[in-house]
Nucleic acid binder design. Structure first.
Lengths: 177, 177
DNA sequence: ATTGGACATATCCGTATTGACATGTCCAAT
DNA sequence: ATTGGACATGTCAATACGGATATGTCCAAT
């Protein structure tokens, strides 16, 4: 269910080909929120077109097909976002690895925690670099998806780094017993 | 692949039945890292037992079967955690909804951002309450999975709340143009 | 002229996942 | 005595997903 809304959301920013949409999923979107490969994207686009939520037009070169969100698609997306919800799918292998540190002995856990903290710093650096070249605002004066995602990533990695440092402290406490 | 390691990690803390494992996935684990229902857990336990990574013993009442991790299982888990990695599955409907706010007009977006901030505060309260009754250390002096998860949840929700507040500020800036 | 790489779409198959259905036990409260 | 709810395990069918494979185009640099 979520993939269709991710696609509608991306197309709400600007019309795009399946190829371009697949690229988007390799960035912040796929990093924090939802992943999809072209093999999932193309069939879903066909279905969305079948339901009239997007319109797909052949556009010359290399068989490129540009998909545009329709009024119905926009309405569907808005309804989904406004609808109250909870739970929803969660799957994050990286976070799982954090928690499973509990199964390792102190030395192994420390090694990994240091690696995590360092990795977070690297990612923070990467996002800060990327942000300097980004626009906060997309068409129609709305906030750009990429801007929101970058802001989220920044805070998320800071939180993860702080967690790793805290966990190292907890490990110290445990070892002193 | 990740589910098997989640199960091994839980069983590394203490032996448990499939039913108890399913309960674990309803808590912090399923909230931030990985979800699984009993219908997925039972077959995977059977497979793990078949590979000798866990041992399963019938234990009296109500057909309860208690699963215990073996030395081989512990080794497999450790190897997975220590192995370098990147990427890994990411799927988080909640975060996706945050990003897709970009498709809404200013008024709708504000409404949702306020709701998100409030929700984060509620979750923070809930975790703080839960933490007061938790042990940082599990058997053998290792950090408890639940403790690590709670520490993560705390920082994660703070980050999300800060993000929502920041996004509201960005919206203000955009609207002033 | 050719070639490497980005652009572009598509299918196939095995496995993962989910929701629904099914079955039965134990125990505490009425 | 009975009943509701937690305990406990399972199967099935439909769908989602991911890795591999396939095919072809456009263009810039050599």
């Amino acid at each position: 269910m979520a993939l269709r809304y991710a696609l509608l959301g991306l197309l709400a920013e600007r019309p795009a080909s399946g190829y371009e949409l697949a690229k988007e999923f390799e960035g912040d979107l796929g990093h924090y929120a939802w992943q999809a490969g072209h093999n999932r994207i193309y069939p879903e686009l066909a279905r969305l077109a079948g339901e009239g939520l997007i319109e797909s037009a052949e556009e010359g070169a290399r068989g490129r097909r540009v998909h545009t969100i329709t009024a119905a698609g926009l309405a569907e997306l808005r309804a989904w976002l406004l609808e109250p919800w909870e739970g929803g799918a969660v799957r994050n292998e990286g976070v799982l690895r954090l928690f499973l540190l509990s199964a390792l002995d102190s030395a192994d856990a420390r090694k990994i925690l240091h690696a995590i903290a360092a990795r977070c710093e690297r990612e923070l650096e990467r996002i800060r670099d990327a942000v300097s070249g980004e626009t906060p605002i997309s068409g129609e004066g709305r906030l750009a998806l990429g801007w929101l995602a970058a802001g989220y990533g920044l805070r998320q990695y800071e939180a993860s780094r702080d967690w790793a440092v805290w966990a190292l402290g907890e490990l110290d406490k445990a070892d002193r017993r």
